[in-house]
Each structure stands twice: as C-alpha cells, then as structure tokens.
C-alpha cells in the first residue's frame, strides 16, 4: 500500500478529521488527524482500510505541543501506517483507542504515565511501570535526567 492508495481509501470512506496524508519512508503513509474526531478516524482505518493490528501507541513532548502516534499494521497490505495527532500543550488528551483496538489498553497506560497524555474513557487508566501515586511524567522534556526527584510513593493495598 502506498501513500496515494491510503489517501484514496480515506477519501472514499469519507472520513472526517483527516488533516493530511504524507509519505513516510518504508511504510504506507503518515496520516495526521484532528484529535476531536479520533474515534471516527480509528474506526475507519480499522474497518475500511484493514489495519486491524495496533503495534504501539506513543507520545512525544514537543514543548509547544504534544504529539500522540499510533503504529498500525495491515496483513493484506503488508505495510505499516502511522497515525498522529497534535495535542494541546496545556491539557493533552485524546479519546481512547482501546475500544477499537483492545491492544491499545496497556500502550495507552504507558503513554499516560510516562508522557502525560490523557486518554478519555480509558477502561483502566492505572500506573503500569511506575509505582502507584507517582506524580511525574518522566518522558516530558521538563523532567530533567540529572536532578533528583522528590518521590512520594503511596502504599498499594491489595
């Protein structure tokens, strides 16, 4: 699958909220979309374009904005697709993809705790790698590697 095919398929499906479809070396395309119409884009990409496997969800802190990206794979097309959306720096949040791709569950938990991106209506947004009650988001640029953190860990009650 190439960029033109992705563009054509998205146009044919009439998906609202797609901002741009750009070429990306080695994969089908990079699709930028509007975070307010996330669920519509996810569903269309899965059902109309056939990207049923979600590889990962990640976030990037660009200081003036946040970016969240989804890496998808389609078996018939034998190619990857990258979805990305720019989020507001003040309160970065986007609708969860866990109901479209259940595998997004843990990836979103990780992106939430490490990058600080909120996933609305996530079924289980708990800490995954960091201890419960951890106050920081280590993958944000403001989190400096060489400064000691003041850490208060709440005891987990089982």
């Amino acid at each position: 699958m190439n960029t033109e095919q992705v563009r054509g398929a998205l146009a044919a499906a009439g998906v609202a909220g797609v901002l741009s479809v750009d070429p990306f070396e080695g994969i089908a395309a990079r699709v930028r979309f509007d975070p307010t119409s996330a669920t519509g884009v996810f569903t269309a990409v899965r059902d109309k374009l056939g990207f049923v496997h979600l590889s990962t969800v990640g976030g990037i802190d660009w200081v003036e904005r946040y970016e969240v990206f989804y890496l998808l794979w389609s078996d018939p097309a034998k190619s990857y697709l990258l979805l990305s959306a720019d989020l507001d720096a003040k309160n970065p949040h986007i609708e969860t993809a866990s109901f479209v791709w259940p595998s997004a569950n843990w990836h979103e938990r990780e992106a939430w705790e490490l990058v600080g991106i909120g996933f609305d209506h996530h079924p289980d947004l708990r800490h995954l790698l960091m201890p419960d009650g951890y106050q920081f988001h280590p993958l944000q640029r403001a989190f400096k590697l060489h400064e000691p953190e003041e850490l208060e860990v709440k005891v987990r009650h089982v």
Binding site: T56, I60, S103, H107
Partner: peptide
C-alpha cells in the same frame, strides 16, 4: 518496533520501542 526522532542534534530527540512481550 523502534521509532527514532532526530531533531538535528547529537542525541536522539525521542526514542520509542515496541516490545512484543509487553503486548
């Protein structure tokens, strides 16, 4: 999977790994 963002510096700007065992 690995995703490496190069912003022109000597260090990568962001590195993201997808671990199969994680999934």
């Amino acid at each position: 999977c690995a995703y490496v963002v190069n912003e022109g510096g000597e260090h990568p700007y962001r590195v993201k790994f997808r671990s199969p065992v994680f999934a």
